[in-house]
Amino acid sequence: MERILFTDQPVLHPATLPGMRDRTITIGSVSKEYRMIGWRVGWIVGPRAIMADIGLVSLTNVVCQVGIGMSGAAAALTAIDDGVAAARATWRTRRDLILDELSDLPVVRPDGGWSLLIDTATLGLSPDKASRLAFKDGEIAATPMTGWGSPDRAGRYLRFVYANEPVDRLRGIRERLRKAWSV
């Protein structure tokens, strides 16, 4: 997701730092940047000494790609205008709207991507309960981050994905959460 940044800062690749080229493994995919979710087409670049082992692991853990997935990825990667800049602008607009609307809540400000987190534990709600209430009373689908990391950290957060939500649907999200969570 290195091209889905809102900071206008250049991406710092660890492999470009002194002494790090032979110690860095880079994994990429068309799934996020190119909006090809579920296509599972990607790549791994790293030091020659470890790539043979990575290849063996990949053979037993990765399903072979269907032809349309590989052709679609090739088209995205070689397009003159791949649409990433336009998508990034759209996602930034959506992110900015949500941040504005939820400014009084404990939101983790994302500098890229197309989702954000709210620390629902700070509000006295478990992420599971916050998710259920948001869906039932606020008509908002959000994912508890339970199980996505250490329980003391990830277990505090609820994830909102705004990748495909139109701005008109995002407007009023604060009122819907106020109704659902009584905060």
Rank of each mutant, 00 (worst) to 15 (best):
S115I: 04
R174W: 03
M145E: 05
D53R: 14
I118L: 14
P106C: 08
R159L: 14
A141S: 12
C64H: 09
E165H: 05
A74K: 09
G72R: 04
W181G: 05
T122D: 10
R92S: 06
K179I: 14
D128G: 08
V45D: 03
A73P: 02
S182Y: 03
P10F: 06
S58N: 10
A49P: 03
E165T: 06
V63C: 05
I98T: 04
L170G: 10
A130E: 02
E165K: 04
I98K: 01
S29A: 14
V66D: 12
K32Q: 13
R178W: 01
D111M: 11
V108Q: 12
L102G: 03
G149D: 08
D82L: 08
T7Y: 06
I27Q: 06
D168A: 13
R132Q: 15
A75M: 12
L17H: 07
P166H: 03
V11R: 10
T78H: 08
P151N: 06
G113Q: 03
D81S: 10
T146N: 06
P110H: 00
A49F: 07
P144Q: 05
V30D: 02
M1A: 13
I50M: 14
A52W: 10
V183G: 01
L99Y: 02
L102S: 07
R178N: 02
G138C: 04
S103N: 13
T146M: 05
T120R: 00
I27M: 13
P106K: 11
V167N: 07
M51D: 00
W43M: 15
I68A: 14
T26M: 13
D8E: 14
I50Y: 09
D22A: 11
R92M: 14
R94A: 08
D128E: 15
M51C: 00
L117E: 01
P14C: 01
T16Q: 05
L117K: 08
E33R: 01
R169D: 10
M1R: 10
A75I: 09
A142G: 00
L17A: 14
L116V: 06
R95H: 01
G83Q: 08
A79E: 04
E33N: 14
G172C: 07
K136P: 00
A52L: 14
D100A: 13
A154D: 08
A87V: 06
S71R: 15
A142P: 01
R35S: 11
P14L: 13
F6H: 08
G172N: 07
D8P: 02
G38H: 10
A75F: 09
W114E: 03
L158V: 04
D128R: 15
I44V: 15
D100G: 15
R35L: 12
S58W: 08
G46L: 06
D152K: 14
I4M: 13
I98N: 02
D119R: 09
P110E: 05
P18W: 04
A86L: 11
G147C: 10
A85G: 08
L12D: 13
T78R: 12
L116W: 00
K32W: 11
A79M: 03
G67D: 12
A76K: 11
D152H: 13
T120E: 02
A142C: 07
Q65P: 00
L77K: 05
E101Y: 06
I68C: 09
E139L: 12
D81Y: 09
I44D: 01
G138S: 07
I4D: 02
T146Y: 05
Y157E: 04
T122F: 07
T60S: 15
A15L: 11
T26F: 07
R178A: 03
P106E: 09
L133I: 02
